[in-house]
Nucleic acid binder design. Sequence first.
DNA 1: GTGGTCTAGACCACT
DNA 2: GTGGTCTAGACCACG
Lengths: 137, 137, 137, 137
Amino acid sequence: MYIRLDQSSGSPLYLQIVDQVKTMIAGGALRAGDRLPTVRELASELVVNPNTIAHAYQQLERERVVETRRGLGSFVSAAEPVLSLSARRDRVAALLDRALVEAHHVDLDADEVRMLLEERLLEMANAEQSIELAPSK
Amino acid sequence: MYIRLDQSSGSPLYLQIVDQVKTMIAGGALRAGDRLPTVRELASELVVNPNTIAHAYQQLERERVVETRRGLGSFVSAAEPVLSLSARRDRVAALLDRALVEAHHVDLDADEVRMLLEERLLEMANAEQSIELAPSK
Amino acid sequence: MYIRLDQSSGSPLYLQIVDQVKTMIAGGALRAGDRLPTVRELASELVVNPNTIAHAYQQLERERVVETRRGLGSFVSAAEPVLSLSARRDRVAALLDRALVEAHHVDLDADEVRMLLEERLLEMANAEQSIELAPSK
Amino acid sequence: MYIRLDQSSGSPLYLQIVDQVKTMIAGGALRAGDRLPTVRELASELVVNPNTIAHAYQQLERERVVETRRGLGSFVSAAEPVLSLSARRDRVAALLDRALVEAHHVDLDADEVRMLLEERLLEMANAEQSIELAPSK
DNA sequence: GTGGTCTAGACCACT
DNA sequence: GTGGTCTAGACCACG
């Protein structure tokens, strides 16, 4: 599970988690029956208080997105149909737009944004690899 | 000014306002020198407390996006950015990261993100231009 | 923390707090990583509304002078400045101008101001050093 | 009269004027019987609403620092004894300290502050000259 | 009438 | 218990 939290975004951490889990399900990265990390695992991975993770999981359960089975963990419920390609593109485009608005305000031009994108793609590829190489729990 | 607040989104109201004003400026809907609605006007329009609007405007002022003149109101600023280049890059990179995490979650690869970026860059350039060409009222 | 407010000075209370915290840091009385008093503590100590303290702390946070960690408190930051060199010079130049206007008003010439500057530079360097040499408690 | 206003200092404009007039009297730049500029003159010189100047003059009159004679203008009352040299130095030193605190926070070293001081001294000397060369009213 | 500051007090997110 | 957000409403500085 690649969840990334932005501590300075102003939006609540637990909602960032809820949204990203939902997105992974909608995008097909998580499927019905898949097990989520335990509260403690995710808390130590994200360097966040376990209560915050628990809060997020409770919210997901309340919305019937996941089911918690005592002693076993939390599992993705029967999932909605995966989003269409254009719907998935729209979600990414909306976030790109926010980055472009900010770029406009800090006076970075298109080329600089392209360079930043390549830089971040590289960085994320590396991060992903190091996670995959780490012992899976 | 068409600002829409989502009272149930969890994201602070004042930040929603800040983001939407920035978006309108980046898209050309607001231009340097334009006057924003008064705090009290916008507060009654959006049905929120005037302090909430004031908070948003002060945030915009601190980011040099608007300038407020006491007794006159708030105006879109023409000032160049005061942040260092690296700080400006960091802000945009953080938002690109959010988009990339979303792309990963909905299973879009690097090339698809690059194409989306080009598409959004074009769209934004067009939006700005079409407003510039429109008859000013 | 010894902060003194002048309720009748006309200068906003929250700015008086901001200035005094900055002075304590520049003088070495507060060091990177030190925790500031909690909002509620300082509010009751200074007999002002907690919102006023919160406003001051948020201002300090925006200037990267302190970092606040939710649920933990506010800490003196070790971050380097994010403003561009020219913006940083402008801030200091504006304050030097105020000193020079004052010097003009009380009929001190350029050489006397230069001498005073050297004196204050020495004083500040000593203040910082003597605290560093003092036994930490 | 060299009065300088800082629009972004947070402290009220009318108080900045009051303080600077008082300082000029304490420093000997203004003497008992000297006439102050008219409200309109000063307002246009400082690019400020005349009400603001009037407010400042009323405050000075309330404190018996100046006397207004109908149709003639405002005049400095019998002045207090001029400040001692050390008292005048202290006032300038206090303002230099504020500049040095800010310099510390934006990471400018002593040499950079010295250079800025020379730059501002030059600038002010030029400004002064151009005022003297302008037709006195 | 414009925005800014301050108080008072509620509720929320996080540790 | 920590800080953050929001409401409500008073008073001030400025044009």
